[in-house]
């Protein structure tokens, strides 16, 4: 029933595998006999334990130097795929994952299915589920044509669970020639200070939208509330487009999917673009002036009111509790 071999394009956060990598490994081992990883970057040995614990038996490790991991990864995958013939290669819907799947797709002349939130195997068919129209419709798409199939999966689509496997064997892959594309060089890395958890991993997410009125309202309302609740701050597309906050904060169809225990939407109307990224949250609180806003259709607690009046009082009350 299952597939013979599935590969996961692994990514790291610091010296640990990214949670999206472990999530994909968990699902991959349920549908495949053999699960292996391809990783671009330094320190593959440090990742081997956790990757193995989640089902990977081998890691093909590529030293990317100061190249872009997705670009180097695609070039490495092109030759690895030719030698080892995986049935399916999974990528996370992340910056580097998207680079890698895009370039590999063009190299191998294979289509991609991206933004996947489900993966199943039915006989010969490999099916990827994608939510469209703000998550109102679920579309299952099966690959046809030649393998390997290439799919990108949105983080948080599966729960990561260890299987107790032994550390993955690390197999170093020699120098990769990415051609002119490989000329792209990372000159500097800037780590922006982040207080509290990552957006996609936070238990509480507080997001702001156009209803904040101005860029200057984001910090005192959204950031402050997120901080008080030990959560992460997010944003609707409208205020990312307006340049108030960076793209990395965007929750929604063209941004991140979050599934926190609690999602608080401040001044967000709830366009389908946004809802698809947050409506699977366990609990949703919305504060918005417009009682007709679609966000109230998914909110467990909806406050029809001005964020500039409600939120400062809320912050004050939470501070008073200490």
């Amino acid at each position: 029933m299952g597939l013979a071999k599935v590969w996961v394009f692994a990514e790291a956060e610091g010296d640990k595998p990214a949670s999206s990598t472990l999530e994909m490994l968990t699902r991959a081992r349920e549908v495949a006999d053999v699960v292996e990883c391809v990783y671009v970057g330094a320190g593959a040995d440090a990742l081997a334990g956790a990757l193995g614990e989640h089902g990977a038996t081998k890691v093909y490790a590529v030293d990317g130097g100061d190249g872009l991991p997705g670009v180097i990864g695609a070039a490495a995958l092109e030759s690895l795929v030719a030698t080892h013939s995986p049935d399916l290669v999974l990528f996370a819907q992340t910056y580097d994952g998207r680079d890698a799947i895009a370039r590999l797709s063009a190299k191998l002349d294979r289509p991609v299915i991206t933004n996947g939130t489900a993966l199943s195997v039915d006989g010969d068919a490999v099916i990827v589920g994608v939510a469209i129209f703000g998550g109102n419709m679920l579309v299952d798409t099966a690959f046809s044509g030649e393998k390997p199939y290439l799919a990108a999966i949105r983080p948080k689509s599966f729960a990561a669970e260890p299987s107790g496997g032994a550390a993955a064997a690390v197999e170093a892959v020699g120098a990769v020639d990415a051609g002119r594309a490989g000329q792209a060089r990372v000159l500097e890395r800037h780590v922006e200070e982040r207080e509290g958890p990552k957006l996609e991993e936070a238990t509480v997410v507080v997001s702001g939208g156009r209803g904040l009125g101005e860029a200057g309202a984001y910090d005192p309302l959204v950031e402050e509330l997120a901080k008080l609740l030990g959560g992460a701050s997010g944003a609707s597309r409208a205020i990312v487009d307006a340049g108030w906050v960076p793209y990395s904060k965007q929750v929604g169809q063209t941004g991140k999917t979050v599934k926190p225990k609690l999602y608080i939407a401040l001044g967000i109307s709830g366009a389908t673009q946004h809802l698809v990224g947050m409506k699977s949250s366990d609990n949703i609180i919305a504060v918005n002036k417009d009682g007709e806003a679609p966000i109230f259709g998914v909110a467990d607690l909806g406050i029809v009111g001005d964020v500039h009046k409600v939120v400062p009082k809320l912050i004050e009350a939470l501070r008073a509790r200490g």
Binding site: T94, Y95, R185, V186, R189, V191, E192, S248
Partner: peptide
Amino acid sequence: RQTEAGYDVVEA
């Protein structure tokens, strides 16, 4: 270039 942690300066 936007990254999860901040941004990278990248050239080609």
